[in-house]
Amino acid sequence: MSLDTPGRPIGLVTGSAPFAGLPDNPASDLLPLFDGREIGGVTLRCIRTPVSRARLPALNRDLAAEHRPVFWVALGLATGEPGFRFETTAINRVDFGVADNEGDRPTDGGPIEPAGPAARFATWDARALARGLLAADLPATVSHHAGTHLCNLNLYCLLGAMAAAGVTGPAGFLHLPYTTAQVARFLREGPEGGDAAPMTPRLLPSLPQETQAAALELTLTALAKAALITKETLR
């Protein structure tokens, strides 16, 4: 049962659990820093989501119905990404280069929802959000392709869940880079004699968690402002 205060607008922040054998994921590590906070008149509910093709769609439907969020941002890790990537588009396809955490690895490019639309589009202003980070000297870009793994599936399903619950407001998916702590660990824990493939990259693009938290706070502030403007317009 939801513990949200009736009448108080809720903003959802969901973050993917660690995957592909990694012990951590900035997408879920950021959540405790924001859960329960109020930003711009919106109370944040931050929830870690499973890296599971089977369970994620139903969970997203439940979250949309329970919280009826005025905005929703889902977070995920883009390995090797040098900055923040605001996604605009989710396609109705699954083709996993890496299995999910339950061992599911579809590789046929089949649909997420056989009867669903070919694509769904994020309802946030990705370009404005990216500009907001750039103005704060944080590297950010707009992306029109979230891939075909769980990040894409997550965006596709959360947008469908929002529509099914009859709630409007900005919603989208934000890809994060590795943290510097993660990359330092990759370097520390590499094979003693070096990688078998000399070109295997371990010194990867990354940003400190503090920088990622600052970027997320700016994004949530902008989303709260946009969501409340939308809410007032619809009254």
Score class of each variant (00 low, 15 high):
138 L>V: 12
39 I>M: 05
187 L>Y: 04
183 V>S: 07
219 T>F: 01
201 P>M: 08
214 A>K: 12
15 G>T: 03
148 T>K: 15
211 T>Q: 12
173 F>N: 04
78 A>Q: 04
222 A>M: 01
127 R>N: 11
169 G>C: 03
217 E>Y: 05
63 L>W: 04
164 A>Y: 04
53 R>A: 15
205 P>N: 02
179 T>L: 10
13 V>N: 01
108 D>Y: 01
127 R>H: 14
160 G>P: 07
66 E>P: 03
63 L>K: 02
169 G>M: 05
184 A>S: 13
15 G>I: 06
5 T>Q: 13
57 P>Q: 10
165 A>W: 06
165 A>R: 07
5 T>P: 00
127 R>G: 09
207 L>P: 12
163 A>P: 02
138 L>A: 08
36 G>N: 06
180 T>W: 03
81 E>S: 14
221 T>D: 03
196 A>D: 14
107 T>D: 14
52 S>W: 07
25 N>S: 11
97 G>K: 09
187 L>W: 05
75 L>G: 11
207 L>E: 13
103 G>Q: 08
42 V>L: 02
183 V>Q: 06
171 A>V: 07
29 D>V: 10
132 G>L: 09
89 T>L: 15
131 R>E: 15
125 D>I: 07
20 A>L: 08
221 T>R: 11
167 V>L: 04
214 A>Q: 13
221 T>L: 02
118 A>I: 03
118 A>P: 06
226 A>W: 01
189 E>K: 02
1 M>P: 14
21 G>F: 08
35 D>Y: 05
118 A>C: 02
136 A>H: 13
107 T>L: 07
92 N>W: 07
49 T>G: 03
75 L>H: 10
129 L>M: 11
82 P>E: 12
37 R>L: 14
170 P>D: 07
208 P>L: 13
187 L>Q: 15
18 P>C: 12
227 A>R: 02
223 L>E: 08
55 R>P: 00
35 D>I: 06
85 R>V: 10
174 L>Q: 10
164 A>T: 08
102 E>G: 10
194 G>V: 11
96 F>W: 11
218 L>Y: 10
33 L>T: 01
223 L>C: 14
192 E>H: 05
207 L>M: 15
165 A>E: 09
173 F>M: 10
24 D>Y: 00
114 P>M: 10
195 D>I: 00
132 G>Y: 12
113 E>C: 10
213 A>I: 04
156 Y>V: 00
212 Q>I: 13
221 T>M: 00
85 R>A: 09
38 E>D: 08
105 R>I: 00
111 P>E: 08
61 R>T: 09
222 A>V: 01
78 A>P: 01
86 F>G: 01
199 M>P: 03
33 L>R: 07
222 A>T: 00
173 F>C: 07
111 P>A: 14
52 S>C: 09
46 C>T: 11
